[in-house]
Amino acid sequence: MTGAVQIDNLTVRYAGATALDDVTLAVAENEMTALIGANGAGKSTLVKALCGLIRPDSGTITVHGRLAHVPEGREMFPDMTVDDNLRLGAWRRRRRDTAPIYDLLPDLAAIRSRRAGTLSGGQQQMVAIGRALMADPEVLVIDELSLGLAPMIVTSLVGHLRNLHATRNLSVLLIEQNARLALDLCRHAYVLESGRIVLHGPAATLARDPRVTAAYLGGHVTVTP
């Protein structure tokens, strides 16, 4: 079986500090794969290396098909309209018609002429997803789907994502702070800790693994007064 993404022995250092240490990870074709881990674990570093935005120190990355990226923090072109933001998503493509995206994400149609910088976080996240889809990708990498968003918005985004995944051939690598959401949504999952993959396997299995439940699904937050 050929994977959509195959990362082997990936190591990335920032000025001496090792952010990723010998990471091996695969995303199977037409599947959703989750990558979870604490703040600073190296998730975004992995995404940037995968998308060619930083150069790894060693290791190999193979991507089958076109890859598009919903970056951490949404990264709008704030002074441009939603429609212009979407069109730029197709910069590397010949077809730059935005109409299919409005069919897919109808919420965007109503705000197509608004400047992206004036939108709410949830709306911006929707634009970021639409912009990535404009590249007509076979592989979609989403760095923090739910960060900073209200639960209702997250539910609607997840709905959109499920739909997308069901209706087109799309392999997804989902980076997500909300581990429960990620494990629910995806078939496979990886756990990254301090730059190393410490666990991986079927999401359902990981969701029952005591190491995962303790660290990521604990639900117990102690608040010191």
């Binding site: 935005l53 970056p71 990264e75 072109f77 002074d79 590397r92």
Partner: peptide, 14 residues
């Protein structure tokens, strides 16, 4: 225009 508007996002879209 995108390059100065948000350099990182410009790189993200290629």
């Amino acid at each position: 225009t995108a390059c100065a508007s948000n350099r990182y996002a410009a790189q993200v879209v290629g």
